[in-house]
Amino acid sequence: MKALLFTCMLVPWLVAASSRRSDQDSQLIPGSLPDRELNGYFNDHLKSRRARSVVSVADEPDDTAIEAEGDASDLPTCLLCVCLTGSVYCEEVSPDMTAVPTLPKETAYLYARFNKIKKISTKDFVDIVTLKRIDLSGNMISEIEDGAFAKLTLLEELSLAENRLVKLPMLPSKLISFNANYNLLKTKGVKANAFKKMAKLINLYLADNQLEAVPYIPDNVRILHLQNNNITEVNVNTFCRGNDTYYLRPSLSEVRMDGNPVVLSKYPDSFVCMKVLPVGRYR
């Protein structure tokens, strides 16, 4: 009797256990029914999620388009630019940067190249007396107010290359390097004493402009680029001093005058004080 009762209890238990094991195995075997159903669920879920993502993106406002229509002046400088200790990098800013940005007080180096800055006013740098280098190359600057750099007593390097300048403003007297290549400068737009008081000027770049004559060049200049202008003549006072036969210019080591109409061989006495002859047209 006991054996019969035990058998009646054992058989259903074994059948139930076998069924559970079969279900577990079918879930683990790739391609089984539960596995296919699970894969189908995930595929449907992913499709649904992608569909919702596409709809949500389409429904959301285009922030990029809105920004493109704005102006950089509406946003904080250090959100548009990279601000490191003493340095601000604002190159190819989007949305368009059309004016010099407001700078942190301690800025010593400003790189704002390849933007659409059109004008430099006296207020742009009035409070940033710590500036040592300014690079505004590749903008659309056609006007610089006199006095725009007046308070920059520490400024050593200034680049205004690749702009639309027709005249130069008053420049800081302590400049070591000045670059105004690729502008629209004519001789009448460069004051006679523009560089005269720059006792520390070493590099002077005025290539690819419309200058008709060589401006006054300080004694300390080493590299002078005047190529591709409209210079038609030089004289004994251009680089040397006609009334001082003992005057020498040992510092001037590179003078580029190629691409000008002037034939340099016609003015041999104009280079007697120099240790090198200008690069240019001699016949």
Results as ranks from 00 to 15, higher is better:
V126W: 04
V262G: 00
D208E: 10
C78A: 01
R256W: 10
A194E: 04
K105I: 13
L248N: 09
K174S: 12
Y246W: 05
F149Y: 03
N209Q: 09
V54S: 00
V263L: 02
E254L: 15
L10E: 03
D208T: 06
G40A: 12
S270D: 08
L14V: 14
G280K: 01
V234S: 01
H45L: 15
L185V: 09
L204C: 09
I29L: 07
D96Y: 12
E91F: 08
H225R: 15
E106C: 03
E157C: 06
H45N: 10
E233C: 04
S32Q: 10
N243G: 05
A148K: 08
R113P: 11
K191G: 03
T7D: 09
P215D: 07
K167F: 11
A72T: 06
E212S: 15
V234W: 00
K191S: 08
A148M: 03
L75Y: 12
A180K: 10
Q27C: 13
N139I: 02
I176W: 13
S173L: 12
I141N: 09
A192C: 03
C78L: 01
V15I: 09
E156H: 10
N243F: 11
I217S: 05
C240N: 03
L165Q: 02
S32A: 14
V126A: 08
E60V: 04
E91D: 15
A112G: 05
P76Y: 12
M274H: 01
R113W: 00
C90K: 04
S253P: 00
V236W: 00
K191R: 05
F114Y: 10
L158I: 07
Y182A: 11
I117N: 06
D258V: 04
E67W: 02
Y247N: 07
Y111T: 08
P61W: 00
P268D: 08
F149N: 02
L84I: 08
S18Q: 10
E254R: 11
S22M: 06
A58H: 10
Y246M: 04
R164Y: 10
D62G: 13
P278I: 00
A99H: 08
K196T: 07
V262I: 07
L75N: 02
K118C: 04
H45V: 07
Q210G: 07
C90A: 09
K151N: 15
S253K: 06
L84T: 11
K186G: 05
D124C: 14
T238N: 12
S48W: 01
T130G: 04
L158P: 13
Q210E: 09
K116G: 03
Q27D: 10
D124Q: 12
S26K: 12
A58I: 08
F271M: 02
A161P: 14
A108K: 13
T64S: 01
E156W: 08
L38E: 15
